[in-house]
Every structure is written in structure tokens, then in C-alpha cells.
Design a protein around this nucleic acid. Structure first.
Lengths: 238, 238
DNA sequence: CGTACCGTTGAGCAGGCTCAACCGCTGTGG
DNA sequence: CCACAGCGGTTGAGCCTGCTCAACGGTACG
């Protein structure tokens, strides 16, 4: 069943921006049917309900995961009790970073999610034998690195409203660069952990953006962009 | 000349922690003589004086670089004039991340440096043909990603002294995990940009660590760890 | 030897954190 | 179907820490 599901996908299961521009780069972001089939052969599909821990930091790393559907968060619990959210992951994102055989972060579903689980040892062999496929992974990890750096820049801002504006803009990209409705499936605490703010500050920042008429937060899981131009200016004014 | 220099190296030109533990993982962190030779064939060596810009953000990305010797900083200048330092790079580190044909960060030497320049198009071809070599790059980029996440955690700390302590501990790793003398070749501004602090706060944090008897800053480019145990505790208390 | 920049120190301010109380939604069980 | 319990979210008061602006000292490089 899993094989059929992956093989049937027309779009690539991995999402990333290529190293290079141009037609060659564009081609590289997609997998061939044969590669999809190979991944499906070693992988298995998992369906998980919301708020389910996938693995914990420090546990033995056996697999890498690709999201077919749903939203996942990658985070670290610090000794102080604070939770740092590294990233929110969406369809076609890859996760399961390990170091010396152990996962470095914990991951948990936010929405109901469907994942492909790729055993690490088998994936390693496959990547060594298929350099095109491996190149996809290289591009993907490189993309993650850039995203991580973007987050670092985001957190450098002093003002909470600016950080939240950047966050809304980032989430917007996952729907459509021109979308006005932006779903925020994660909790305010998750957002706070990602932005390096307290959840109170996230609340206040949300109210601030509403006061300024830039974004409204219709309910806890939906933001609406009222003034795209001013949002863009605020985001750019780092 | 460049070919000889790379081929002569006994240690791998790339530094990273492998995905997996065990002997297999250990082997993977090293390149074969043939791979070194191949990299040398497409690459050229550059020697640069201190404080020399290697490339600027937004310029056309033609090459990837590997550091043979010296220290390099990767940073972004923001519209507000603030400079965010993404990373400090040392011997065997890889840099030259690009997106759609353009470099995403600027890079500059801190000390005198010796670099291997690898043209991107030739490197791409080489990686596609040598999946073992490509695997090294994959491991390397993955390592960079983890480092970037570590920095994100670091910056989440509220206290300047704690951030600076983590920084000193990080720099210490580049010498020896047990070293008491830690060279800091970069300026206070560079450190501030990396830690997400003002340079004044870095100064005050340095004074604070001295006051507590944990670290002394003997001169602008050398820190001495006085109390490793308390430093470790401070670093861990995130 | 001079000069410009790096680094340090001080004063005052602003913004985010903490603690605390309250509100509102959601989901569960009777 | 409704009531209640619990948690996520919001709002307020006061504190704390890092930022800004400013002046001064030191050092490295031309």
C-alpha cells in the first residue's frame, strides 16, 4: 500500500530550493518514478493523530521521516524547562536529524499527520547507490540550513510585533505567497518557543498587529492579512 | 601545487560528525586519496590576508569554499544596518551556500586564511558521479545545520553572561575540549553579532564572567578559563 | 608617531519577562 | 444534550536586563 501511495505522487516528496537556478536546477527538485519507488520500498507509512510525540531527543535514531501530510514541530526541551522550537515542518519536509546515533531534537505532530518512515541504515545504502537521489537530500538539508539561518535572523529582532509579523509571513509562504488567510495550526506557546518570546508577549504582539490594522487573528488558528504592503514593510525592516 | 597540497593531507579536508556511530560512521568522515585528488583537480587554492571579503550576499555564486587554514566569518547585513553573524568557520569547514544562483550570506576572513575554491558546476558533476564523496558533503551540511540550531538555542538565553559563556565554550571546542586558553580572533562586534547582543553588552558580560572568577579576558583575542566546572554549569543551565 | 577604530564604562530608557488573575473554548462524561 | 473541568489564551502590574547615546582610553596599523 505504501509503495503505491508514494509511487502515485506526481510531485516530489521532497521540497527544497535548488542550489542553482535554471532548468537544470528545477529538474533536480523532483524525483524520478524509480526513485520514489525505491524510497517506498524501504519506507513505511504512518498515520498519527494530533499532538503525538514521534520521537524524543536523545533516543536511538533508527529512521528519517518525510511528511506526506500534516504539520510537525521539532523542538528541544531545555534543562530550565523552557522549550525551544527549532522548526515547523510541512508536507514534503524531511526530518530525523541525528548525531552519533541519537536524535538531537524531539518531534511531535501538531495536526493529524501522515509520514513516511525511512530506516536510516537502508536509506544510507540507497543514497550511496543513487547519487541523484542523494543529491535531492543534499539540496533538502541545505534548504533546511538556510531556513534555520532565517530563523536566527528573525529572533535577532528586538520587537515582538516584528517577530510575529515575520512568522505570519513565513507561514503564509506555506499556503500561497499571496494568501490573505494564514492557518496557524500550532499553539501560541509553540509560536512563542519558535520566536524566542514568552506566550504573553506573543499575545500582546498579536494585539499590536491588530491595533495597527496589519493582521487580525480571527481565532486561535487563523490569521488574516489586512494590509499586505505594510506587513511586507514591517517584515523587511529588520 | 594545489593538487599536491590537498593530496598530501592525511586528514580529511572536511570536518563533521557522522550520522551514525560506530566504525562505519567513523570511516565516512574521511576522504580517500582519490577523492582528495579529484577535489584538488577542480579546485584552486587562495591565500587571503585578514579582514578580506570573500564574497557578498546577493552576488553570483560560482564556487564553494573549504578552509585549509584560518578563520572566516559568515554574516548578513540587514537593512537596518545591523550585522547578524551566522557562523565562525575554521579549518576544514565548508561554506558558500547559495540560493537560486546567489550567495545568501557575505563572508570575510578574520585571520589570514588559506582556502580551496571549488567551482560549483564542476563540483556538482563530481558529486553526482561519486556518491561517497557526496555523502561527505551531506554529512557536512547536516553538521552545519545542527550547529545553526545550537546557535538558535544559545541566542534564546536571556542573560548576556550565559551567552558569552556558551560562546567561549564553543570556541574552546575548536582548540581542545580541555583547553584553558581560548583564542578569540574575532572582534567584540563580531561576537556581539553572533550572540545577538550589542557590543557594549558583550563587554559587560566579559567583565561579569571575570568578576565571578569563571573566565578572564587577558587581551582582546585571548580568553582564559579559570573555573572549567562552573563554566560547564553555566553553559548547561539554559 | 599619529590616527582611526576597537573596546570599555556610565546614565537613562524601553521593551520583554514574571507573576497573577481572569476569560473562553474544547472536549468529555453523565 | 448539557454541565463542568481543564487548558490555552489574554490582560494587567511591576521588575529586570539589555539597548541607546555618549564620552573616554588603548592599541594596532599605516
Amino acid at each position: 500500500v505504501a509503495i503505491k501511495r508514494i509511487a502515485a505522487r506526481r510531485t516530489s516528496p521532497l521540497r527544497a530550493i535548488p542550489f542553482e537556478k535554471g532548468p537544470l536546477g528545477a529538474v533536480r527538485t523532483r524525483l524520478t518514478d524509480r526513485q520514489r519507488e525505491q524510497l517506498a520500498r524501504i519506507g513505511s507509512r504512518m498515520r498519527l493523530p494530533p499532538r503525538t510525540t514521534i520521537y524524543r531527543q536523545g533516543s536511538n535514531a533508527h529512521s528519517v521521516f518525510v511528511i506526506a501530510e500534516g504539520v510537525v514541530t521539532s523542538y528541544r526541551d531545555m534543562p530550565s524547562g523552557k522549550r525551544v522550537v527549532n522548526s515547523f515542518l510541512f508536507a514534503r519536509d524531511l526530518f530525523g536529524l541525528s548525531e552519533q546515533g541519537q536524535y538531537v531534537n524531539s518531534t511531535r505532530t501538531i495536526t493529524r499527520a501522515s509520514l513516511y518512515r525511512l530506516p536510516l541504515d537502508e536509506l544510507t545504502v540507497l543514497l550511496k547507490h543513487d547519487s541523484d537521489l542523494q543529491f535531492q537530500f543534499l539540496v533538502k538539508v541545505t534548504h533546511e540550513l538556510r531556513e534555520s539561518q532565517r530563523r536566527a535572523i528573525l529572533v535577532n529582532r528586538r520587537d515582538a510585533a516584528g517577530r510575529l509579523a515575520m512568522f505570519v509571513a513565513m507561514m503564509r509562504e506555506h499556503v500561497d505567497a499571496a494568501a490573505t488567510e494564514v492557518p496557524l495550526p500550532m499553539t501560541r506557546s509553540d509560536i512563542a518557543g519558535f520566536l524566542g518570546l514568552s506566550s504573553e508577549s506573543v499575545s500582546r504582539a498579536a494585539r499590536e498587529l491588530e491595533r495597527r490594522g496589519i493582521v487580525t487573528f480571527e481565532n486561535r488558528n487563523l490569521a488574516r492579512i489586512l494590509d499586505p504592503a505594510r506587513l511586507a514593510r514591517l517584515v523587511a525592516s529588520v
